[in-house]
Design a protein around this nucleic acid. Structure first.
Lengths: 180, 180
DNA sequence: CTTGACCGGCTAACGGTGTTAGCCTTAGAG
DNA sequence: CTCTAAGGCTAACACCGTTAGCCGGTCAAG
């Protein structure tokens, strides 16, 4: 397992801001995360936030960096100790858990409007590496990644018909990518 | 093939507004589509738009309705005349074309913040029906849909490493879902 | 022919957003 | 002791979706 790319350190106050932002995001979603609201929760006025982050995009990028680090750690662990269902099922299972546990964070990390150029270089690739390790083949790995992301986002957005047995759909996909 | 669900008719002026909105969206993306900008392009002031649509969400919903109708038509045609690569590959190929041809519209139609309750009932399901027709099995169909959406959105957002042979990745997924 | 209603435009304005300019206090280094 | 930088603050800007209220034209009913 490659090491996680280095994420730039944050000052104490900056960490506090990021932690608060994460709480707001996870509790109430992306639209609730405004600079004024965030400042309020931290105990300052909105313009003062700019003493710590040059723009809102940078706060969001910090949140997403944390998300990718956590995701990378979990997935790398899953592929290292896959259990008896095999590495593909293990990675997919963990991926789903992560997305559904923090749906707003997942959406932020994968959705549009994110300034990906602000992320630590190589971070996203490192977090996705377990897909390659699980399949051992780059094209199938990318396809499997797309499947996982598609399932996660469709499930989060509630776009599957009510009553769908998504557990089984995930299994169906896992089999399709295991056999290939 | 089931018939496409009925989409409510639009007045002449409303059609003009929707057409203009679509042009702005496709040319410059979702953020460029503001009520003031849209009104300007149509030749009126922003508040006058509300004589034709009760809110911006309704304009977006109209755009997305059109998108789903077009997508449904294309995909149903693909599954009816699949060609020699088989129905799965045919549907996936068309799906990709549609998404990449109008990426901003695709994002709007599948992204967050869309008021899905404003869409013609059954429209989205009808547009997705070809996935079921291609696989003949509901779980695999959902998995294949997730794969297609994941690929499309990751490709649009530019999240695959530069130089990826995505053609081959699509094929890899099509094979995985054809053999099952 | 007149009257009244509605349709569809307009201006002004409200509360919200991210963000900037500029001021001021405080802590710590030289 | 003085200077500087850090980190707060208020006021304000431009833009956003949206609402209130006015007004001219069209057209049907009396």
């Amino acid at each position: 397992m490659t090491d996680a790319p280095v994420v730039v350190a944050r000052s104490e106050r900056a960490s506090e801001i990021v932690a608060t932002a994460r709480r707001i995001l996870e509790d109430e979603g992306r639209e609730a995360l405004t600079m004024r609201r965030l400042a309020d929760e931290v105990g300052m006025r909105a313009p003062s936030l700019y003493k710590h982050f040059p723009a809102k995009r940078h706060v969001e990028a910090a949140l997403v960096e944390d998300a990718f680090v956590e995701m990378g750690e979990v997935l790398h662990r899953a592929v290292r100790r896959p259990g008896r269902r095999g590495p593909v099922a293990a990675v997919l299972g963990r991926y789903r858990d992560l997305a559904l546990t923090n749906p707003h964070l997942y959406r932020l990390a994968t959705g549009p409007g994110l300034a990906r150029d602000l992320l630590a270089p190589g971070l996203e690739e490192w977090a996705g590496e377990p897909f390659f390790l699980a399949t051992g083949e780059p094209y199938l790995a990318q396809a499997m990644w797309a499947f996982a992301h598609g399932m996660a986002i469709l499930e989060i957005e509630g776009r599957f018909p009510a009553g769908s047995d998504l557990e089984r759909t995930w299994r169906s996909g896992a089999e399709a990518f295991s056999r290939s």
